[in-house]
Design a protein around this nucleic acid. Structure first.
Lengths: 244, 244
DNA sequence: CTGTTAGCGCGTTCAA
DNA sequence: TTGAACGCGCTAACAG
């Protein structure tokens, strides 16, 4: 590992006695490189401690090797301020960063506002500045049609967490309705009949799905879930239903 | 905000009827731009939705607008896997990201191993690829002389969390010894005399500082803290003392 | 005060 | 199978 911090592809090429392009092919696992030459180049890379400059790579029309993870600012900060972990956010860091690293990628977290207008502007800014190869949308942004449309228009690949049936996205989700159904069913099986439901924020797609599951709980062994008040306000949104 | 994703500085220059360099000056708050021209350029930037490409900026010898936050892989992953938050890591996200955003910067988290050898290699890799303008070292890496030397040699500015007296770094720390001292003193004031101390991992600089504070607790009202066993093993490192 | 020139490090044409 | 030339978008010198 050399002391010099600015070892370029040309230095490697010279050391290995090949052209710059050949080194590039080795780096990018390109074909058309004789194994012998490949080894020689690889050896030069290792001994020089060469690391490709990501900025230059992107400039040359290649990938940025950056994945942008979008999180809701308010929600995230509230959790942090409260000193409690960020549920799946931590899990995402856990798995996402590890996988990114394995692929030579870097995961970049950014906080954006909940409201569509500023969120859109902020997304445009980070996206424009960083030019990520892909974006990960977490709730509630994963359910935001405007953001998804924006990304789709620009052909920026994106994944949505906690959302399903996205036409232009990779969706990572679970059976929210089924889980709520099972949970309710379990309570009914225990002879409970007055079952209230405290729902998540309405701008979370999962909230509606869970409510649906809850409401479809079987009438079999027990009765259908009813409001604790006996009225029809079985479902109560948390936080007043809007201001999450 | 235009639909086109690839609006460059030249587009803005043309729209504003100035040269590319003038636009650059406006972006970088450079001097020597007439207020009138500045406004015209700014208006063009806004209407076109222009966002400077960070990669290009760095390529041109400017800053990368990236700050690298280094965390210990094992420790971080253990916390995540256990479902518990990452104490000050979350706090850092909280404050660090916010401040970065305010300055037009981006905070990038990376996990590296505890052992110096791989840590050094990994730091060289991310640093070489991303070319951050600065690095934040968290414990135990903030106490790792090799990493700090590496950064110093390359003139990469870095901050150390939980470390003090770094000659080439910005240090963010608290009075560890004083806190331990006060804690011990408090117990003594409560008439306790058999006070054991469970220390943090030895590769954390804070551990030694805290032990020092504990050991300097006053003999006044009570006796000096003694080992629960009556022997001289007053201090016991957690996790066996090595394998944190 | 503003415009012009010359690269940054790399991938992507092409040609050999 | 390899090499040479060009340009990405931007800033840093220099000119005017």
């Amino acid at each position: 590992m050399s002391k010099r911090a600015d070892i370029t592809i040309d230095d490697v090429a010279e050391a290995a006695g090949v052209s710059r392009q050949t080194v590039s092919r080795v780096i990018n696992r390109g074909p058309h490189v004789k194994p012998l030459v490949r080894d020689r180049v690889q050896k030069a890379i290792d001994s020089l401690g060469y690391v490709p400059n990501l900025s230059a790579r992107r400039m040359a029309g290649s990938r940025s090797y950056l994945i942008l993870a979008i999180n809701d600012r308010k929600r995230t900060i509230e959790n942090w301020a409260a000193g409690r972990g960020n549920d799946w956010v931590d899990q995402m860091l856990f798995g996402g960063m590890t996988e990114c690293e394995r692929q030579g990628y870097h995961l970049l977290f950014e906080l954006i506002d909940t409201e569509t207008e500023p969120a859109l502007r902020q997304l445009a800014n980070v996206s424009g500045a960083l030019r990520p190869d892909g974006v990960i949308l977490t709730p509630p942004h994963s359910d935001n049609a405007a953001l998804c449309a924006w990304l789709t228009e620009r052909s920026i690949p994106f994944a949505r967490i906690g959302h399903r049936d996205g036409s232009h996205s990779v969706d990572v989700f679970m059976d929210e309705a089924g889980a709520a159904y099972e949970a309710t069913r379990g309570l009914i099986a225990l002879r409970h009949s007055r079952i209230a439901y405290i729902a998540g924020a309405p701008n979370y797609g999962a909230s509606a799905q869970r409510i649906a599951g809850y409401e479809q709980a079987p009438e079999g062994g027990g009765s259908r879930p009813r409001d604790v008040d006996g009225g029809d306000r079985r479902v109560q949104f948390s936080g007043g239903g809007r201001d999450y």
